[in-house]
């Protein structure tokens, strides 16, 4: 190499045509591609989907003869939406004028906090939704003449017209979902955002390596 990179840089930019700014098109409506804005968009979409799902459940469970369960699931899903909206607001506090390291760390801290809070919520959310989703089955078994007679004649110990063993299995499953709820949620989140998380972690690690050299 004959020329130093400094010389190439200086000579290259002597030509004023080298630095022509592209035309800005309708900047207000530009779809933002920053990670933060991408997250905001994804969170918004998720919230809308959950809201629609909550309303659908309300109707579905009413049609299946368990409107109160539908109401419970509706409030559970709406609670998740409310938490997501609150988290979205705190994301706006991240200051883009920080130095690169602090900026990425701030965003990463926010992500960790959001995931940690959601993990706690999801540990209760998953088992409650699971138990609630069993209610239409219980209702159908109890109201169906054939199934109800079969259960009554089965010889099992019954609670609320359903074999106690069934309740125990359902409760044990709910407890297991509670115990593993955090892991299920993290697995789910990692599936959707894992690549972005790893990218951010790699950049932070590289910057930390630079700081510690």
């Amino acid at each position: 190499m004959g020329k130093s990179i400094e010389t190439i840089w200086k000579k290259g930019f002597l030509d004023s045509d080298s630095l022509v700014a592209p035309k800005l098109n309708d900047l207000y409506n530009q779809k933002s591609k920053t990670i933060i804005d991408k997250f905001k968009r994804m969170m918004k979409i998720n919230i809308y989907v959950i809201m629609v799902f909550a309303f659908l459940n309300l109707g579905l469970y009413a049609a299946l003869g368990t409107p109160y369960t539908g109401g419970l699931i509706f409030f559970l899903f709406m609670g998740v939406c409310w938490i997501s909206i609150k988290q979205g607001r705190t994301m706006n506090n991240i200051d883009a004028s920080l130095n690169s390291y602090d900026y990425l760390k701030s965003f990463n801290s926010w992500l960790e906090m959001a995931i940690s809070n959601n993990t706690k919520v999801m540990r209760f959310f998953y088992p409650l939704v699971f138990l609630a989703s069993l209610m239409p089955i219980v209702h159908a078994l109890k109201t169906g003449e054939v199934t109800n007679a079969t259960i009554l004649n089965s010889g099992f110990h019954l609670v609320y017209g359903i074999p106690t063993i069934t309740w125990i299995i359902a409760l044990v499953t709910a407890v297991l979902i509670f115990v593993f709820g955090g892991k299920i949620y993290k697995w789910d989140v990692n599936l959707a955002y894992g690549r972005i998380f790893r990218k951010i972690e790699n950049m932070i690690a590289e910057m930390e390596e630079l700081r510690n050299e």
């Binding site: 020329k3 990179i5 000579k11 290259g12 690169s100």
Partner: peptide, 24 residues
């Protein structure tokens, strides 16, 4: 860029990691 050397320098810079690109 009009300057071919500058284009090659940028091509080389793009092969650096994101942080190194910012530093250089």
């Amino acid at each position: 860029f009009a300057d071919e050397s500058l284009n090659q320098l940028f091509d080389a810079i793009r092969q650096l990691s994101e942080v190194d690109r910012g530093v250089i």
